Simulated assay, not measured.
Amino acid sequence: MASHIPAGYAEDRLHRYLAHWTRDPSNVRKLDVDAISWSTADERLARQKNACQVGSDYYDLVTPLYEQGWGQQFHYTPLRPGLSIRESMTAYEKTFAEIARLEKGMRVLDLGCGIGGPARTIASTIECEIVGITNNAWHVERGTALNKEAGLDKLVSLVHGDFLKLPFPDESFDAAYSVESLCYAPDPAQVYLEIKRVLKPGAPFTFHDFAMTENEPAPWYYGPGGNIWWAWRTPGWPDFWKVFKMWEPFRGCAHAFYRLLILLGRTPPEVSTLMDTMWYCTKGVAKGGKMGIFTPMYVFVCRKPGQ
């Protein structure tokens, strides 16, 4: 099976991603904070026009770390008393399948499937066929290997493609869903038109995206926020190490350790930049949750009009 860490990972993939966020193409080893924080309208428009490639390069970079540190399911979840983050994710995916009106024997489209974690849960539970689409070739390679390992390659398949131009015939799916992915589309209206095109008349479409209820046993962001107090209180040990790695003192120690490896020539300098990139993203998500201005768990269900 393909490893979750591809060959030549850190240096090559980091350079490709940072090239989208710098004003100095000769130096793509470090974050160009000015180019990110004070980008011009023209720079933002250029990235928007190239959004598919920017997104693919980003997931080339972070997918192995997501899988290593978070698991095969790249989404947030409502937390359930007594369950770990992973158990809560699996339980939620099963509930989401019910909300999405998915049934045995359906042919279902998963938009933004990642490496197929939710698709495998849903397909094995409902016994429906799921076709996932992602703009990242590594997702397809890694997810296909995981499908075979789970014995689900007959039910779950992954396709490399673009939301804006879905590579499927008209009215070829019984249902469609998306988990935390459509918010990244450069033209949401075009995506919805494409979804409508490939759905059969009367077919449901459900998405889980970035917005939240306040009645939870623990704040959803305690994981990315590195809150080891909640990690201990809520499910106990299953989450503790995962959340501990997000804890700021641990991050500081890990950063110092890698700085030493870089100094000794045992690790490329890009690893430090990669860690910073992921850290800014993770802390931003948690900080938005604490401020009450961000939620990743707004669910919306609709249906294509029947004939």
Score class of each variant (00 low, 15 high):
Arg16Cys: 12
Thr95Leu: 11
Glu98Pro: 00
Lys30Trp: 05
Ala100Met: 05
Tyr17Ala: 04
Leu31Ala: 04
Pro78Lys: 06
Lys49Ile: 05
Asp24Arg: 10
Pro81Tyr: 09
Arg23Trp: 01
Tyr92Asn: 12
Ala97Leu: 02
Glu87Pro: 06
Thr22Asn: 02
Tyr59Asn: 12
Ala19Asp: 10
Arg23Tyr: 02
Leu14Thr: 06
Glu11Thr: 15
Arg80Tyr: 06
Ala100Cys: 09
Val62Met: 03
Arg80Asn: 03
Thr90Pro: 04
Asn27Gln: 13
Asn50Arg: 01
Gln73Glu: 00
Ile99Met: 13
Asp34Val: 01
His20Leu: 04
Arg16Met: 09
Val62His: 03
Arg13Gly: 03
Arg86Ala: 15
Gly55Arg: 10
Ile36Ser: 03
Ala51Gln: 14
Pro25His: 02
Ser39Gln: 06
Gly71Arg: 11
Phe74Ala: 11
Ser39Tyr: 01
Tyr76Thr: 04
Glu11Lys: 07
Gly71Leu: 12
Thr77Gln: 15
Asp60Arg: 10
Tyr9Trp: 15
Leu18Cys: 13
Asn27Gly: 06
Ile85Pro: 01
Ala19Gly: 13
Leu61His: 06
Glu98Val: 05
Gln48Phe: 02
Leu31Ile: 14
Cys52Phe: 04
Gly55Ser: 15
Asp60Glu: 14
Ala100Phe: 09
Glu93Phe: 07
Arg47Gln: 07
Trp70Arg: 06
Tyr66Val: 13
Leu79Glu: 01
Phe96Asn: 01
Val33Thr: 04
Ala35Glu: 04
Ala10Gln: 11
Leu79Ser: 00
Cys52Gly: 01
Ser26Asn: 12
Tyr92Glu: 12
Gln73Arg: 00
Thr63Asp: 05
Glu67Asp: 15
Ala35Lys: 01
Thr22Cys: 05
Arg29Asn: 03
Val54Asp: 00
Asp60Ser: 10
Thr90Trp: 10
Val54Met: 01
His15Ser: 14
Val62Lys: 01
Gln68Tyr: 13
Leu14Gly: 14
Glu43Ile: 00
Lys49Tyr: 13
Arg80Phe: 04
